Amino acid sequence: MAREVFDLSFSNGFARTLHERALGDIEQDYPWQSLEPSRYPPLLLARARVGWTENAFNEFCTAAAMGQMLQALVQARAPLDLIGMASRFAIDEVLHIELCARMAMRLGGGAPIHYDPEDIVFALDPSLTPLERSNELVVRLCCVGEALSFPLLSGAMRSASHPLSRSILETIVRDEAHHGKFGFLYLDWIRAELRPAERDRLGKAARQTLDAYRSLWERGPSHVVAGVTSEGFLLEHVRELGWMEASAYAELARVTIEESVRAPLARAGIML
């Protein structure tokens, strides 16, 4: 198994110029200097560095998966409007990678993450047809992953009390809204052609994907007393760094699973 260190770089050539034209002036558009790391205790700062680095890595993986999904959509001859919509998602993820990575750097530097490049895309059954691959990737990536992440990111955005963390989350939430919606637009197109066996297969794939997020709603109990969390951090600091209070986040995850994942899939005849 080849292990690599998660690291990001720019070419600093004309591609960098085009990149900045497409995504805007990230240096100027976000209030990076407004966040002062020395304001926070070392342990919380270290956790924030890990958290924002993990956010960048997750967006990195999602960018790869979005490319995989786009290839499947083209091979399955999905409607051109759906292909066009999906083709924009990878560039959204690239912006999110950069924003999260820059936040980690502002907090003192990215945390080390080691990964296998083969694991950052979905491993699919090679016997599947192009349409079946497309169905599975859309369900896993958009109907579960992105549909779940949008309300959670929205909750974090509403909680974020610092101009920098809030502006970053506002950008990500704006983009993620279309990613989750795409999955169910796709199911509207394909629903009449889904036979019972394929619906059952997709339900199992959705369940498997959802299980990977189980830690979000199985977090241990937490409490806040006089503005201090059970771990001894000021809730004010937690919110400034872009987090929700842990028990509120876990409850939002449980509600989101029912309302944004399970129920919409059931309406398409796909039962978890």
Rank of each mutant, 00 (worst) to 15 (best):
H114T: 13
F122D: 11
N135C: 13
R102A: 00
E93C: 05
T129A: 15
L82V: 00
L131S: 12
Y115F: 15
G109V: 03
H114L: 09
L124P: 00
A104N: 07
D92M: 08
Q75L: 14
R88I: 01
V74L: 13
E136R: 14
A111S: 14
R88A: 10
E132R: 15
M105T: 09
H114D: 10
L82A: 03
R106H: 08
Q71D: 15
H96V: 05
R102K: 11
V139H: 08
A104P: 09
L128H: 06
S127Q: 12
D92E: 08
E132Y: 04
F122R: 11
D81I: 02
A111Y: 12
P112Q: 06
P117L: 01
M105W: 04
V139L: 10
S87D: 07
E136N: 07
A101C: 05
G108A: 02
A90I: 12
G108C: 07
D125A: 09
P117N: 01
L107M: 08
E136I: 07
D119Y: 04
I91R: 12
F122P: 07
N135T: 07
A76G: 00
L70H: 15
G108H: 10
D92G: 09
H114F: 14
V74C: 11
C100M: 11
P117W: 03
A78N: 00
L80H: 09
Q71C: 09
A123Q: 10
R133T: 02
G84F: 08
P112E: 10
L95P: 04
Q71A: 14
T129V: 02
E93V: 03
D92I: 03
L99P: 00
D119M: 09
E93H: 02
D125T: 06
L80P: 00
I83H: 10
D125G: 12
P130F: 04
A101I: 01
L124E: 15
D119I: 01
R140F: 02
L128P: 11
L131N: 13
L80E: 14
S87K: 05
R140H: 08
S134H: 09
P79K: 10
E98M: 06
S134G: 10
I120Q: 01
A76R: 00
L95H: 12
E118V: 08
L95Y: 03
F89V: 04
G84W: 07
L99G: 05
E98D: 14
M85G: 03
C100V: 06
R102L: 01
S87L: 03
L82K: 00
T129Y: 10
M103Q: 14
A76I: 00
R133Y: 13
E93I: 00
G109W: 02
